[in-house]
């Protein structure tokens, strides 16, 4: 399953990473090298094997559904590149 230039562009857009036209061929060959490397997994018979969903056998804990934290919006936005009145500021999204 080799990727082509268009697939690289599509994946980069899905990942929200801008790539330039000059970067595409290089990324394509690197991604294909990695995909070739992982293709060895096709040799393994995994029929009847359950995928690992928990690293160690354990049930996911649940907690009571109540507010236990919060009330400090100023700290939440403290690292924002742009904020106003404790809101994050972004370019206009809705026309």
């Amino acid at each position: 399953m080799a990727v082509d230039d268009n697939t690289v562009r599509r994946i980069a857009h899905l990942a929200r990473i801008r790539v330039t036209d000059e970067e595409v061929p290089h990324l394509r060959s690197e991604l294909n090298a990695i995909l070739d490397f992982v293709a060895q997994l096709d040799q393994v018979d995994v029929s009847g094997v359950e995928p690992m969903t928990s690293v160690l056998p354990m049930d996911l804990r649940q907690r009571e559904d109540k507010v236990t934290d919060g009330g400090y919006a100023d700290r939440i936005v403290a690292n924002a590149p742009q904020s106003e009145d404790n809101y994050f500021v972004v370019p206009k999204v809705v026309e």
Binding site: I76, N79, A80, P81, Q82, V90, P91, K92, V93
Partner: peptide, 13 residues
């Protein structure tokens, strides 16, 4: 680039 860290502007989000 919205909640923390580096932000590089663009024409839309």
């Amino acid at each position: 680039g919205v909640r923390y860290g580096r932000r590089v502007p663009g024409k839309d989000i």
